[in-house]
């Protein structure tokens, strides 16, 4: 019964939507794009904040040494050779975890490690180094954390790689593992040394 009505209208009406079939795939397409963004975006670690200091000279500072408060450490001390600056404290549990790796790096004699002793009592730091070993060439005592702010410190331990011209090249947030040293830091240090900081 309904047959004749259908045949008459269908030829005219179906022509229009057919050309727009792709419209129905649009939500699926958008969903796919969203999934790609989520896949990569949610895999990022929100704790790793990119440092604006990379490629910049070390911040200007002058702080007393942990070993001898009469002497000072300054930003100019980083010039002349590739070095590491490690921000640490005795209240920082991850620093305790990182400490054996720093000891191993120090024993390898590849690179001098400077310490920024951050927001802690000097006596505690001296004890720590006596008990667990001292991987640092020198430590700068930043009791009120002001110099830490200059370096953009937000979570200890943090380690900066500084080239022979005193330019910050890399920042590692969190404890360095031996794997990080072998795969990231050491190759960067070698290449900075070979290319004379360029």
């Amino acid at each position: 019964m309904s047959q004749p009505v259908d045949t008459q209208t269908s030829s005219e009406q179906q022509a229009k939507p057919k050309a727009k079939h792709w419209v129905y795939l649009l939500p699926l397409g958008l969903f796919a794009v969203l999934m790609v963004f989520f896949f990569f975006g949610l895999g990022l670690n929100p704790r790793l904040i990119p440092s604006p200091l990379i490629g910049q000279p070390t911040p200007v500072f002058s702080l007393p040494k942990l070993s001898n408060p009469e002497e000072m450490i300054q930003h100019t001390d980083f010039q002349g050779e590739v070095s590491l600056l490690n921000i640490w404290a005795t209240w920082c549990t991850s620093c305790r975890q990182e400490h054996p790796v720093l000891m191993k790096i120090a024993q390898s004699k590849e690179v001098p490690i400077y310490g920024l002793y951050y927001k802690d009592v000097p006596a505690l730091g001296i004890d720590w180094l006596q008990n667990y070993g001292d991987p640092y060439r020198d430590n700068a005592v930043d009791e009120d954390g002001k110099v830490g702010i200059e370096w953009g410190a937000y979570g200890t331990p943090e380690t900066f790689l500084i080239d022979q011209n005193g330019i910050i090249r890399y920042k590692h947030v969190g404890p360095i593992s031996w794997h990080d040293w072998e795969t990231t830091l050491l190759p960067m240090i070698t290449s900075l040394r070979n290319n004379n900081g360029v």
Binding site: I49, P50, S51, P52, L53, I149, E150, W151, G152, Y154
Partner: peptide, 8 residues
């Protein structure tokens, strides 16, 4: 603030 900590 941004010179030290970035736009974050």
């Amino acid at each position: 603030m941004t010179e030290r900590y970035g736009d974050f």
